[in-house]
């Protein structure tokens, strides 16, 4: 995303974004969880409202089932699955209109991946539209929403979520189904 489009305008219009590279783009690993969850608009007029930041972080971490010792722990100290939950906690906090998630479960264990998917579906239940980019046809079917396959820069016609994986695979390979 950096270098393309305008992230600020995207966010001002109600967009939320889960980047592919959570360590480099999703979180500031060296900052604490409460600091990460306070971005991009930290509370406090003159000075940071640390108490509000901590309370917000505790609430979000509990709501999303993040396993962390405390909101003061650094984001980099968490496991990949918990890091991704923190990214979603931040991105979904303001009830986005559109959530764009790129490879949101890549590299996660099965339980974390399932948790991340249900968080995305939960956001959709609350009125958000979600665009999920994945390289895993099995996962694409799990969202129960229309699937489009990108092959060599071209977008396929929408497929129903029940489309067999083999068909999706042929589309991905660029072979006519």
């Amino acid at each position: 995303m950096p270098g393309h489009g305008d992230p600020l305008a995207f966010r001002a219009a109600g967009g939320a974004f889960v980047p592919a590279d959570r360590r480099e783009e999703g979180l500031v690993a060296a900052l604490s969880l409460s600091e990460n969850l306070a971005l991009p608009d930290p509370p406090g007029r003159l000075f940071l409202d640390r108490r509000a930041m901590r309370a917000h972080a505790e609430e979000r971490l509990a709501a999303l089932g993040v396993k962390a010792s405390s909101p003061a722990a650094s984001a980099g100290s968490l496991s990949g699955g918990n890091q991704q939950k923190v990214v979603l906690a931040r991105e979904l906090a303001d009830r986005p209109v559109l959530l764009v998630a790129v490879h949101p479960t890549r590299g996660l264990d099965l339980a974390s991946a399932a948790a991340v998917r249900s968080l995305i579906l939960e956001a959709c239940g609350m009125g958000a539209a979600a665009l999920v980019v994945t390289a895993d046809p099995d996962e694409a079917r799990l969202f129960g929403a229309p699937i489009r396959v990108v092959t060599r820069g071209r977008l396929s016609a929408p497929c129903v979520p029940e489309t067999p994986v083999a068909t999706l695979g042929r589309l991905m390979a660029g072979v006519a189904p």
Binding site: M1, P2, P7, L8, R11, F17, P19, D21, E24, E25, G26, L27, V28, A29, A30, L31, E35, L39, P40, R90
Partner: peptide, 14 residues
């Protein structure tokens, strides 16, 4: 945040 992780800062919306 901008200094620690410039790419994240941009993506987060700073």
């Amino acid at each position: 945040a901008t200094g620690l992780a410039p790419a994240a800062a941009r993506a987060i919306g700073l």
